[in-house]
Nucleic acid binder design. Structure first.
Lengths: 364, 364
DNA sequence: GTTTAGCACTCGACGACCGAGAGTGCTAAT
DNA sequence: ATTAGCACTCTCGGTCGTCGAGTGCTAAAC
């Protein structure tokens, strides 16, 4: 959109003022804002033109102007000044993320979501990092007693999953050893859909299993791999909505909140194309009807390999886009570093209570 | 409280009517309700007496009556008719609880909380079953490669926890074996506070550890045991509040919601004394100021041994106490059965995809 | 003595009305 | 092209009066 420099200045002033006060802004206010280099009358003319261009709207005659969603779009694309996250907030993010024990990816992501919602005062959503293809790297079967053993599996994303199995019929330790050998030979490095009934039957024959234990372990494996592949989305701080005037209408707030609690809908939320990218969708740009007068800001974080996730917030179109974007990116960046950086344990004989990964996240 | 039969009938009618309509109920309405066996004038007199007894209140002259919290108390103690859960709802609970893979206690409890909130339309809270004393039954260390190994621990509540450790300095498989022997000898069967620095130092000396690896494993153990002992409370369906007229006032709703998001406050919520018991606290009976005009219904579930948990809902004093209590008990009962019933795996060569525990919950 | 019909009274809810104030668009002067 | 001035418009907040639900009281009926 080709706007005169003055129109841009005015549009920016209107947006920024409105974002702060949530009330239609009039020509006089803008004039004051702009240091009275131009009179309110001139601004009135300009604002009328901006309105006919579809960038501003009037709630009613004799009210000030409010940015239209197109207006916000122009603002976001061309007018917005990039903001840096404040030191205090950066500190907060760093310490919150680091307080989580590494290796607990899911919790780390939850924490990131909660941070996002606290730092922006909007509901936040975070999806767990999904991996392209999940496989098992290694199986171990730990014999506890004649009726009990533990399955321990190491996945290709460096997480360990286990399951305690109680049996009604006894199982011999030798059988477990045999199972271990066979599973490590045939079930490692393959994706979930390659664990076929045929594979299971042939494995049963190989170890001479007539009890169905092979099928149970295989079933557990499939479950694990599915779970590792699936993204699940968590929403935090939904009630933050209530503190914003556009959601004073309880029904409106409730509609949005219930939309946000629907996992299948959540999956359709906009997502940026590249890592670190910020995707902003404003009002009617959103596909979902429920988001027609809300905006969504999402950033992507990557975790080496082909794992990646999303973290974003939902709020009124009247949003501090710049601030929110800065904070989200910072959190996403921190997540990437912590998740990808690995949690190599630096042993240190001096210290008694070794704590993990003290690397800095580094500000962006 | 000694009330004439007629007063009881009237009080019950007022409570039940008010619970349904959320509007002050007048003498005429009660008369209609009671099949016009008594006139509205008589009821007016009775209601005036009930008011002077402190069981009813008038929002203002010339409005109908509303139960006072004392009124609700009498209703709950003496007047309420026990309700049974509907078949549909019982079905819903059964299938929802059973859909969770057993052994995942935390998820099961989450599901129970979510059920409670859906079935009652109020925010629900559920605490994980806490065990009196947590100890480790067994350690296993799985050697992956020279710099990596897995800690697998079996706790006395039959859960398995693991952690993947990446080292910057190599570790020999023999060392792991030695560690296994020592940890199983000295760190099993003891509670967290008995893992002292002295014990750690002596263990380090016993295995000849100069790298601090013993301290790391001990630290992990302490963390685990603390985690196992701690109860954590989850709240679900907080936004359900919004659909009830007493929380139309956004600020009021927000106050309560933010109260419910405070873990330390949550711990103070009322809890029943015995398993299966239902504890109902009405309005000002609640200790917390934020709950002064809300009611809390909580039921306890037990899981063998000394593990137990809580599941409850928070809502306006104008609550369908009977219905809510019935549903909560049913859910708690289901939880108890599923959690305590153990998840013995019945092997069955016929079936390919063995599923677990199909026992019925049984209606109560 | 208890119950009931009748009636005057009270008080909040709802809608109409009105003035104040903010902001606009237009016109004419700079 | 900009600006001062002005008439006009529309919302917001307050006041006022009506309406209706519900009460308490009194007196009659059972």
């Amino acid at each position: 959109m080709n706007l005169s420099e003055r129109k841009k200045t005015i549009l920016r002033a209107v947006v920024e003022q409105y974002v702060q006060t949530a009330e239609p802004v009039g020509s006089k206010t803008v004039a004051a804002e702009l240091g009275s280099s131009i009179s309110s009358a001139t601004i009135r003319n300009e604002m009328a033109e901006l309105e006919s261009l579809g960038l501003l709207e009037q709630p009613h005659t004799s009210a000030g102007r409010v940015p239209s969603s197109l207006g916000y779009r122009i603002y976001v694309n061309e007018l917005m000044r990039r903001q840096k996250i404040s030191n205090d907030d950066a500190q907060l993010v760093n310490s919150a993320l680091k307080s989580r024990t590494p290796g607990q990816a899911a919790e780390l992501i939850d924490e990131a979501g909660s941070l996002a919602s606290r730092l922006t005062t909007y509901p936040a959503y975070a999806t767990s990092a999904a991996m392209g293809v999940a496989t098992i790297v290694r199986f171990d079967f730990i014999h506890i007693d004649s009726h009990t053993f533990i399955i321990v599996t190491l996945l290709n994303n460096d997480t360990v999953k286990n399951k305690l199995i109680h049996l009604t019929t006894p199982i011999a330790p030798q059988m477990l050893t045999k199972l271990g050998a066979v599973f490590n030979a045939s079930f490692t490095g393959i994706s979930e859909e390659r664990i076929t009934p045929a594979l299971i039957t042939s494995t049963e024959r190989a170890v001479g299993d007539t009890t169905g234990i092979v099928a149970v372990i295989a079933g557990f494996t499939i479950e694990l791999l599915c779970e590792a592949k699936s993204v699940d989305t968590r929403v935090t701080g939904a009630m933050n909505l209530l503190s914003h005037p556009e959601y004073r209408d309880i029904d409106k707030a409730q509609r949005l909140i219930s939309y946000l609690s629907d996992d299948s809908e959540l999956a359709k939320l906009p997502s940026p194309d590249a890592s670190g990218d910020i995707k902003i969708t404003i009002g009617p740009e959103n596909l979902a009807d429920e988001l027609r007068d809300s905006s969504v800001i999402a950033v992507r974080y990557d975790v080496g390999g082909d794992m990646q996730g999303l973290i974003g917030v939902v709020g009124p179109t009247r949003m501090e886009y710049s601030k929110v974007a800065a904070r989200l990116s910072y959190i996403a960046q921190g997540l990437s570093v912590l998740l990808a950086g690995g949690d190599k344990l630096q042993l240190n004989p001096e210290r008694k209570n070794s704590k993990l990964g003290d690397g800095d996240i580094g500000q962006g």
